[in-house]
């Protein structure tokens, strides 16, 4: 009973699929944007690979770029001000750094909304009070929170770096419907080719205390390295613990194998 019924059911699915095959066109709708889209360029960082470390001087420069440039539009919600201690600042420096921010608060006497100096336990304050304000200031586009940006895009850091350095004039052969509309900027690394962020970096914009290069590429690389850290502050620690666990389990597995061989020594199997 099962087999004849199963045979009929199977036949039903197969015929439905054969009909689907003959009725589905074999060619895809042409997508003009594909031809202009570029693969992200690789950005090598000290946090890559199986033995990563943080390049603290670079992360400090990246923090400076974020603070002086990106923070005008982008929030960093998941990162606490105290977290920057991991970039090599002393406790005193972190306190002063936190004081430099104004965070929303209430007036202790009247209960009216007010602001106060930042504390290390505060998170990075957002540039806009809410989404409406953010969109109003940005041509109706929403600057995304950057805390997780290098994990929230395919190709992660390579993409962010390519995007920051990838603004250019649209190529001459770009079809009309792909041309940037007013307020949009051409960037072949962006999924839609045109995004609402103007090129945020220009050569020499930020001055680094250590005199490091400050052309667009160098600043983009520094801020991307910083955003790798904000997305995964536990990355280096994770790799270290991983190696310890891996080593321990390798020894465990070897011992387990030897005891397995020993126990089975007299049993052919």
């Amino acid at each position: 009973m099962v087999r004849p019924l199963g045979f009929l059911v199977g036949l039903g699915f197969i015929v439905a699929l054969l009909c689907a095959i003959v009725t589905t066109p074999l060619s895809n709708e042409p997508q003009a944007a594909h031809a202009f889209h570029k693969e992200a360029r690789h950005l090598p960082l000290s946090s890559d690979g199986l033995f990563p470390h943080w390049d603290k001087a670079k992360l400090q420069r990246g923090l400076q770029v974020y603070k002086e440039v990106c923070s005008a539009c982008h929030s960093l919600d998941h990162v606490a001000l105290r977290d920057v201690a991991e970039l090599g600042y002393t406790e005193g420096q972190v306190k002063t750094f936190a004081k430099g921010f104004q965070v929303p608060s209430i007036n202790p006497d009247t209960g009216e909304p007010a602001t106060r100096d930042g504390l290390p336990s505060d998170h990075f304050p957002a540039p806009y009070a809410n989404e409406v304000a953010a969109r109003a200031a940005n041509n109706n586009a929403l600057p995304p929170d950057l805390s997780l940006i290098t994990k929230a895009r395919e190709d992660g850091k390579d993409y962010v770096y390519s995007l920051l350095t990838g603004f250019q004039n649209p190529p001459a052969n770009l079809p009309k419907e792909l041309q940037p509309a007013t307020g949009l900027h051409y960037n072949p690394y962006f999924a839609n080719l045109n995004l609402a962020m103007a090129p945020p970096l220009t050569d020499g914009q930020v001055t680094f205390a250590d005199g490091s290069p400050n052309d667009v590429k160098a600043m983009a690389s520094d801020v991307t390295a910083f955003l790798v850290w904000t997305a995964e502050p536990k990355l280096v620690q994770r790799m270290r613990v991983g190696w310890a666990a891996f080593l321990f389990l390798s020894i465990f597995s070897i011992l387990a194998y030897l005891s397995y061989r020993n126990i089975w020594a007299d049993k052919e199997h």
């Binding site: 199986l50 994770r238 790799m239 613990v241 991983g242 190696w243 666990a245 891996f246 389990l249 390798s250 465990f252 597995s253 387990a256 194998y257 005891s259 397995y260 126990i263 089975w264 049993k267």
Partner: peptide, 26 residues
């Protein structure tokens, strides 16, 4: 002890793969 020993070895290899995935490429 025959299959407890063999499963112990299997568990070691399983955990090695698990750890590699979880720590190195989560």
């Amino acid at each position: 002890p025959y299959y407890t020993a063999k499963d112990g070895f299997g568990l070691g290899i399983f955990l090695l793969v698990f750890v590699a995935l979880t720590f190195f490429s989560p």
